[in-house]
Design a binder for these strands. Structure first.
Lengths: 199, 199, 199, 199
DNA sequence: GATGAATGAGCCTTCATTCAT
DNA sequence: GATGAATGAAGGCTCATTCAT
């Protein structure tokens, strides 16, 4: 835990780890506080509740994720390079922070379907996904403008592609694929999206 | 709750509902016992722990799911009909049991990444997926034998396709798409798999 | 703590002591459970919350108080003997259970004025007093029927008299008056009520 | 909150309000500090602890109460006028500050019986009452000197009368009696004290 | 002197699990 | 085998108090 961070970031960063490792329910405020080298009460100085903290962690990670992705995608000018950059960057982020970035994206399913959460909480939980999918949609739109993709149903495809990409990266990590294998799968993924797997 | 079931099935069936509605953590043994019309202690006669029960519920649901899917797929003879049957049946099951079948599949992500679960539990949790993906792989293999699909990396594609299908069905349900819209999306999904979205 | 009591009474009895000694807020569920030789969770098997427990303790004590008072008063037939029996019995009860009977009657003021309590809770809290005052009103009515008291404003007087009596008994106990002194004060109280302190 | 007050009085005044509204336990230092427009730490510059602050608030209020009462009583020269002035003034104060003056007097019962308070605290808590009762005793003594009251047990009667008066005023406020009704009850109270309710 | 960020003891409550019946 | 009363570890959260600035 870096020293220079302010308390809020310390907590966010610690909570990020603990939530990722243990999931929302099995992460305890105590553990998060200890891990952040902070008193238990301090957490409640910065966040209203455990759920609020979780949501902020989500936003925090998504923000960092989006920033990085956007920076990479923005520097490309063609559909193909954008898509490849996106996939590469996504995989890279997951690799770096397997523990928390990746899980952050799956972890919430449990919460989203939980009838005990407030409508507001649900909305926030679901909105994080929307932002990510939007980037993909933007890239696909470029593809369409370039004449590479047919333009209909792009939002549907974007949504599905995010799932594919995510699963692909996760698989890679879980099966501990080599760098080369990862590159191959990146290609497979792009081809699958554009050309399908038909012969 | 049907009367003829034995106690074990009563519990399994009840737990299935409750876990689905509330998620693993917010489902309580009490609620499950009440819903199953058995005593709380009885659950522990049949299952070692809440987690054990959860895993058995998972197996139980997967078994029912697999049986149904297999019955449908087996009665088809071509790749195309198999695939369409599969998608249709999957969507149907999700629709019927949105509450529990569908969620069951997402619910576990939270648990799979949870470091507090035993290695053994993790393995069981993950294995359920493998069985489902195997069916898809079998169908794709038929597609290859028919000469419709190129044969390489089929296991990779099967894995990804399951994710796509799942997401597509979930989207449909969450957005409350009409029957026609669902049929359209079924076609989109097949086309996307076989031909990609390239122009 | 007697052994024969059922758990609920054990808890009620223990809570009665602890609430009396420490007041509502400074009584902890832990302490009550320990004092009742019961697990902390057991308390929640019988009572919904600390406040519910408190209210039940109140009712429990008031009930015992009322029963005793009524038994004594009912066996008398004249206003004078009724009043004296009442005062005697009230003082006796307070003496026996100074720790909890007496305090029970004052303890709640804090809660009644507390804006954070629900309307329902408030009502229950206040109703306990009403029942006690009713007995006094009944006695005063007898006095009126006997021609000893003028009949107007009896409810007002009953209300005030309860306060006087309570204070008188409390004074006695706090100043540790002797038996004789207590008898004298009983007379003073009756005289004060009937004749006033005018010369 | 007047501007000229020094910090200590600002705190005292604020605490007075908050304690009255919420009771000792549910009043928080935070709320008191905010309400006083001072920092939380500042409170501890002037008062050792929450309990110390509470006691000082009590003293502060009693002082203001006593001053007002004395000013009114002192300007009268006969027992009757003194008594009526006293009752009138007391009721008025309660009416004006129902929120805090009145409750202050009941609020403490909870604390007085609380075994967790130090002996010293208890003494201070109880002494505040003594001062008030003394005024009544002084008035009754005047009554005796005028030949209106018999002189024995005046301290006992004074003590009880304070209780009656307090209850009467509280009743009035809680039942939202009209001005006239209040005047009637003032008379009833005096008559009850001097002549009793006998016929 | 004045502040408020930081703290942690302690609170009420829940719930998976046990075990005597 | 079936039960549910009893349990206590563990949880989220509050708040009086401290102390560096």
């Amino acid at each position: 835990m870096a020293r220079v961070k302010n308390k809020r970031d310390q907590i966010l960063s610690s909570a990020s780890e603990i939530f990722a490792i243990n999931g929302y329910h099995d992460a305890s405020i105590n553990e998060i506080a200890d891990n952040a080298n902070v008193g238990k009460g301090t957490i409640y100085e910065y966040f209203d509740s455990k759920m609020t903290l979780y949501i902020e962690v989500l936003k925090y990670n998504i923000e960092r994720y989006l920033t990085r992705i956007r920076n990479v995608v923005i520097s490309e000018s063609t559909f193909n390079s954008m898509l490849e950059s996106y996939i590469g960057c996504h995989t890279e982020i997951l690799k770096e922070n397997f523990k928390y970035a990746g899980i952050m994206m799956n972890n919430s399913a449990d919460l989203i379907f939980n009838s005990k959460n407030s409508q507001e909480t649900l909305k926030i939980l679901m909105d994080t996904r929307v932002e990510v999918v939007q980037i993909i949609l933007d890239i696909l739109t470029v593809g369409h403008n370039e004449g590479q993709l047919s333009g209909s149903n792009l939002d549907y495809y974007a949504d599905l592609f995010f799932e594919m990409l995510n699963r692909s990266a996760l698989r890679s990590l879980m099966m501990q694929h080599s760098e080369e294998q990862q590159l191959i799968e990146k290609d497979l993924l792009v081809k699958m999206l554009i050309n399908g797997i038909g012969q």
